[in-house]
Simulated assay, not measured.
Amino acid sequence: MQIKSYEEKYCDQLTKLILGVQQDEFGVAITLDDQPDLMDIPGHYFDGKGHFWVALQDDVVIGTIAVLFLENGHAAIRKLFTDANFRGKEYQTGQKLLDALEAFCAENGKNAIYLGTTDKFKAAHRFYEKNGYEEINKTDLPEDFHILAVDSKFYRKNVN
């Protein structure tokens, strides 16, 4: 497995993966139109705004993660998704993606990472908590944290 920065050639694969996990696997009522960042990844995540990575197995997208830089040294995790066939300790796809994001945040002087998720992603909650993320109240989020309609649980990890 390889973790790489996003390239345009992976757009269709990663969109299919993300929508498949959201809609088909977990029944979350979200569409591509609800996620304009997926239609313009460079415009949303590059040029000092953050970053976007893909996990690849034989040049096939098996995972994604992105970070958005916020004000005051904060960052927000976005789009952490892994193919169901590449989850768990055997593959550590999510772990490798999260490690890349956290290292990038540390290199860029970020002091806290935030995320929002749906209450349906129980395994994700355990994953974040195992990695030192603490559940917080919605009111504890930074002002510039964009809350998605499906977000109902929120986490923070202090870094650096």
Rank of each mutant, 00 (worst) to 15 (best):
D40Q: 11
I41C: 12
G43A: 10
H44W: 06
Y45M: 06
Y45G: 02
Y45D: 02
F46Y: 13
F46G: 09
D47K: 07
D47A: 08
G48A: 02
G48L: 03
K49W: 05
G50T: 04
H51E: 12
H51L: 04
F52R: 05
F52A: 12
W53L: 13
V54K: 01
V54H: 01
V54A: 03
A55V: 11
L56N: 05
D58Q: 13
D59L: 12
D59T: 12
V61L: 09
G63I: 07
G63A: 10
T64L: 13
A66T: 06
V67F: 08
L68P: 02
F69L: 13
L70E: 00
E71C: 00
N72F: 00
N72W: 00
N72D: 01
G73K: 00
H74G: 01
A75L: 08
R78G: 03
R78T: 07
K79H: 11
K79A: 10
L80I: 14
L80C: 05
F81Y: 15
F81P: 07
T82G: 13
D83A: 09
A84E: 09
A84P: 01
N85K: 12
N85V: 04
R87E: 06
G88F: 05
K89N: 08
K89S: 09
Y91P: 05
Q92S: 15
Q92W: 03
T93H: 05
G94V: 07
G94Q: 06
Q95G: 12
Q95W: 05
Q95T: 14
K96P: 04
L98G: 06
L98N: 08
D99A: 15
D99T: 14
D99C: 11
L101T: 10
L101R: 04
E102I: 14
F104A: 10
A106I: 15
E107D: 15
G109S: 14
G109F: 11
K110R: 15
